[in-house]
Every structure is written in C-alpha cells, then in structure tokens.
Design a protein around this nucleic acid. Sequence first.
DNA 1: GGGCACGTTGCAGTCGTTGCAACGGCGTTG
DNA 2: CAACGCCGTTGCAACGACTGCAACGTGCCC
Lengths: 253, 253
Amino acid sequence: MVHERRNPPTRRPGVERIAAALEVVGARGWVSAADLAAELGVDRSTGWRLARSLEGIGWLQHDRVSRRYRLGLRLFELGTRALDGFDIRAEARRVMAELVSATGESADLAVRDGDAAVFVDTIDGTNEVRAFTRSGQRAGLHAIAAGKVFLAHMPQVEVDAYLRGPLDAYAPATITDPATLRDVIALTRRRGWGDNRGELNPEAGGLAVPILDAGGACVAALGLNVPLMRMGDENVTRLIGELLAATRRLTVN
Amino acid sequence: MVHERRNPPTRRPGVERIAAALEVVGARGWVSAADLAAELGVDRSTGWRLARSLEGIGWLQHDRVSRRYRLGLRLFELGTRALDGFDIRAEARRVMAELVSATGESADLAVRDGDAAVFVDTIDGTNEVRAFTRSGQRAGLHAIAAGKVFLAHMPQVEVDAYLRGPLDAYAPATITDPATLRDVIALTRRRGWGDNRGELNPEAGGLAVPILDAGGACVAALGLNVPLMRMGDENVTRLIGELLAATRRLTVN
DNA sequence: GGGCACGTTGCAGTCGTTGCAACGGCGTTG
DNA sequence: CAACGCCGTTGCAACGACTGCAACGTGCCC
C-alpha cells in the first residue's frame, strides 16, 4: 500500500472502516464474518453487522453454504463508472489491439491517480511466455514504466513532493533512492519513454510512452508489459517504435 | 433501479448513506459538495464532510479549480477485484473476440447478481452500425437476453419470487406481465437461448446462450448485442449458431 | 458427549456524526 | 460600488448510530 500525501482530510472512522473491510475482503477473496472482525480488530458482532450491511447494498455477496463473504458486483458497476470521466479507453483499445498483434506482448493503458499509476485497461499478449497485468492494478509511480512517464510530465514541485515521500520497494530492483530516481525521471523526459526492469515484479518489465492531449498535458500512458528475458536493447528499440507509432494514431480531443 | 428482494439486512444508515453518495456522484459525473448534500437531503456541512472523507480514501476525486468531486480510481481498483472470484473472463475473452470477428456484432459476457444481470466484459463489434453495451452495466433479469437465460436455469421457487417482485419497464417493449414472462422463460429453456428485442433499449436487441460448468449449472451467459434492424429470423439463426459454437469452445472447469 | 468456533441477537454506554449557526471568499446583480 | 446569494469551511452541542459485552443456538471436530 502506497502512502498518501494529501492534505489532511476530515477523519471519518466510519468510511475508513468500511474501506478497510472491503480491502480485507478484496485481498482474501472469501472471508467469514469472524475473520473479517479479527482482521479489523473489532468484535465478532460488529464484523458481522458490518458485513451484513454491506451485503444489503450489494457491496458484498454472501454464500449461504460456506457462510463466507466476497466482494459484490455492485462494486464492479461502481468501479466502471469511475472510468466514465476519463475515457480515453474506447479510442485506446483499438490502438492497443494493433499493438498486441504487432508485438505479441501484453498492452496496457494507465492513468495517474495521485501518487499511483492505475492500469485502466489491458489486452493480453499472444506470445507463449508473456507478462500479465490485471486491469485495476495499482502501483507507485516510481516502480513502473507508465509511472515514470507521469513523473516526467509533472511540475517540479509535485515531483519533489513525491520523491520526499516513502518510496515503497515492491521488488529488489525497485528504485527507492530519490537521487537515482531523479536521474531516471530526467532520462525519461529526455528520451520520451519510460521503462521498468523487474522493479515491480522481478520477472517482468515494461515500456511506456505518454499520451498527450491537445494542450500537451500527459493524460495517460500507453505501455507494453514485457518479460524481462525479452528486454534486450534491440527488442526494446523495436517495441518503443511500435509504441510511438501507436500513440500517433491516437487522437485525444 | 431494480428493487431488492433479499432478507432484511441490518439497517446501517452509515453505509447506505455512503452508497447513496457514490451513486449520486456516479450518476451526475461532476458534483459539488452542496449539490451532493442537496441530493442526499442533508446539510451542506454534512455533504462536504462526507465528500472530504471519501476523498481521503480515494473513492472520490476532487478538482481544486472547479471544486467538484467525481468517482475516484480506487473504486475502479476495488471493482475489478470483485471479478476475481468469478473469472470466466480470461477464457471467455478469447472466444468473444472470435465471435466478434465472425459476426461483426458486439459480444458480451454476463453473470447473475441476485435479481440483476451484470455485463462483466464486452468487446465492441466491427459493423458500421452496432449496439453498444458498457461493461459494468446492470439490468433486471427480465429485460435482457442473458437474464432470460439465467431465469431459465434458476430453481422454480426463485423464478416465482422474481416474477412476484416489481418488473421494471426500461422501455415500451419490456415484458412486465408475469404470465407472459413465464411463457418466455419456458421457451428460453426449451430452445436453449434467450433473446431481447428492444426491451432494454428501444433500438437494440440481444441474443444469449448459457455457459454451463461441469455440473450443468449456469455460471454465466455469452451474448451478442445486435441492432434491432438486424434481428430478422435468418440472421438470428446464424448468430445463435455462432454463439452455440463459441460456448462449445469454452472449457469451464 | 463435550468442547470449540461461529452466527446471531439484546442491551447500555460511548463516541462519531449531524444540523445549526457563523464566517469568509467569490461572482453576480441592481 | 454595495448588497446579495451561493458555496466552502469550521466550531459546537445534542442526538443517535455503532460498538463491545454477554448470552444463546447451532454445527463441527476431537
């Protein structure tokens, strides 16, 4: 979990508890009311009542035989609505499909959400060995190719603030040194694309290029998720070429 | 909104208010704190504090210049997690892509969530005029092709309970008469596929076939979203053939 | 059969949340 | 230019929802 660096919001234990509960259920898959209570550090009765309430609005689903809860589909509905504002997706999906057939690698589309990058869409590659990214996945900006692209397009003050905060180490190769990261960001800005070599997942890497709107703002990043074994220089050059060609086919506003 | 027919959950105004707030923001796109409060029927201060709290956990996003809120991407993340349990998607997507190239129509995958069917994945068609379904969209079982397939595979008692409840009329053609619907369900069960002719959207129709697991339970429905103008008998026959062929290529467990 | 874990419910105290009121900023109107 | 209205924001006191505790019932395992 990436630490937040926002101005202090009004504390509301109610909503935080609900969020924590859903987080727990999301992480564990199937959870009993007692497990949920234990995980939240509250009484069994409280955990049960909370789960029951969340079931009432469809945010949790209850299985009568196993007496366990999991996330409900109304959350899925709500989640997809969250993308309505952003939708570069319709346009991007077509380009992503072309990318996949040209490269065989998995293509993804990411947007920035505060201090994290979120993959809002992915298309699986066709190669036998391929990296996999789940749509909805989230990671710190410093750990993935798309995130470095976002950092390269952020105002200096925001970048400084980001570098000051905790830089989570997702893998041994994750860059957690601010000075090193600053150089990487500069490099990313200069050459126009970002990369990631085992910094989120030890076996996978990624490449990403910015999607700019008419005003030159970076609204999203288009990327490829590539097994490390295929991240040699000559192949990276080829893939970056494909990515850049793909963004040129994108008309954003 | 479809009415719920569950056993009475414990009332928890807290979670219901939060859900209502997110529903409002989801429906209106960009909402000011004052608007949100008005919509919820609470004081401005309450609306503002609620919005601020939700922003704190990333469920709402705040735009400083317009001072408005919209749904945050953490909801998207949570929503995609809700699908993890269900995932026929990985398998189905391949088959759906084949369906699209064979028919040119938009393909969709739906699962049942209580009294509603939810589209968990869609692939746009390639025809010039095509129907569009948003992933995450939800509708009453009686109003869409996939829903009728689910009804055809549900125990009689559950079907009776469903028919007793309110049957929302989404469009003039929506079937809201229980007796008629019962006949339609019987027909769907007999012939093995469901259809929808302008019952959700006046200009669109749909076709759907069940995806059965090893035990014969209907775990999902595979469908095509077809403009009404192309729902003539000969074309429907062809499309149903494609759908049935596609499900045979699906290995579920 | 006994023990254990869990679901479930009633009850009273706590504490979070609410509405009210007020202040300040900002754009609009007369 | 002043008055007005709208909205964001904060303090405060009262209300009420939520919590933990305790108890009961059930199903499962030793």
